[in-house]
Write a protein that binds this DNA or RNA. Structure first.
Lengths: 191, 191
DNA sequence: CGTGGCATGTAAACGGTTACATGATTTA
DNA sequence: TAAATCATGTAACCGTTTACATGCCACG
């Protein structure tokens, strides 16, 4: 396992909640990290296998629930040590990929209304994200854990970024609408 | 060429500045899109070849400058049409990957000082980003183009997000420092 | 003239997603 | 017990990065 950050997300999840299954880990990542991380089953299940082979986790109890019984896993001491090592390493900046910004930048080349539609769509997505994050926030209010301060900090950045994007989106909407109107006006003068 | 967004970034770049070479396209992407997009030579050169084969761009003049002569490329009508098509398509949300947030979330498991160091590092990176973006902003002030409003909008979101992250970072620093101090205090009481 | 770095190009490796396959467990 | 869904597992594919190879131009 060379670079696999999947493994560390798994170790991390198991460090805060023991005996999670692959399925539950996937769900936990989606629910809690959805706005800043993602893992597919195609990554998770093979990683679990390798982690067991390396002795960083071990199979635990079978978990019942809706559907098939799930195989839970638990962190070993070696696993916890490995997680701690990784946490102390400098975090890497993942290659930035924001297709929205790309399309907006080239908006001058697009057909009328295109950029406006993109901004509207971005705002919708951000509103959904904000709702999700606020949901997590109110969930979090109830629980108590020594990890909570870190969770709230994480949540705080997500909220701050989403709100900033939403603020920008509102004003961009106004600006773009004015531009389009002006362009139409010029067109009709010319036409 | 199925999904290659590389191709469209290239088309886009050529749409606003004709006769760019692969090298110059790479540099332009890094300089202007550095905070939200990236392309490697390993993507750019093969893409240029395919775009020529498909008639979306065509080899243009040899560009002189420092170093070896560069092969410039120009957008064809078909290329411009293809760009416009792509721009009108819904933008895709790229898989979110923020390793910083991941490590911060699991901060409770890390050794003392780790999260604080990460936040400090994040702030440094964001300050650099902010400087870069402000540099672009003052550059942009001079030029005039019908594309400028879109460029300023793009820049505006980058600035807003970076500033929001920086604001968060400042307060997170204070909070974490307080937490660490408290933890040390408790430790010494226990010890 | 030769050497250093600029510009182009390519192959292999990698992380990750997608699509598909297959048991197991409810529930109707 | 049939249908539906849940949970696990895997193989192929895809875009991208990395590392390496190579010629060309400017400059010492």
């Amino acid at each position: 396992m060379k670079n696999s950050r999947t493994a560390y997300v798994i170790l991390g999840m198991l460090s805060i909640q023991p005996n999670l299954s692959g399925y539950e880990i996937h769900k936990a990542i989606e629910d809690n990290f959805g706005s800043f991380w993602g893992e597919s089953y195609g990554q998770i299940y093979p990683s679990l296998k390798r982690l067991v082979a390396e002795g960083l986790i071990e199979p635990g109890k079978l978990v019942s629930g809706p559907g098939r019984r799930r195989q839970g896993y638990a962190l070993t001491d070696a696993g916890r040590a490995s997680l701690r090592e990784w946490l102390a390493l400098p975090f890497q900046n993942d290659p930035p990929r924001n297709e929205f910004l790309l399309k907006l930048f080239f908006g001058g080349e697009a057909m009328p209304g295109v950029s406006l539609a993109h901004v509207r769509e971005l705002n919708e997505r951000n509103r959904r994200t904000l709702t999700t994050l606020e949901g997590i926030e109110s969930m979090a209010r109830g629980i108590q854990s020594q990890n909570k301060p870190y969770w709230m900090l994480t949540l705080g950045l997500g909220l701050a970024l989403t709100r900033a994007a939403l603020d920008w989106g509102e004003s961009a909407l106004v600006e773009l609408a004015a531009m389009e109107a002006a362009a139409v006006g010029v067109d009709s003068l010319r036409g």
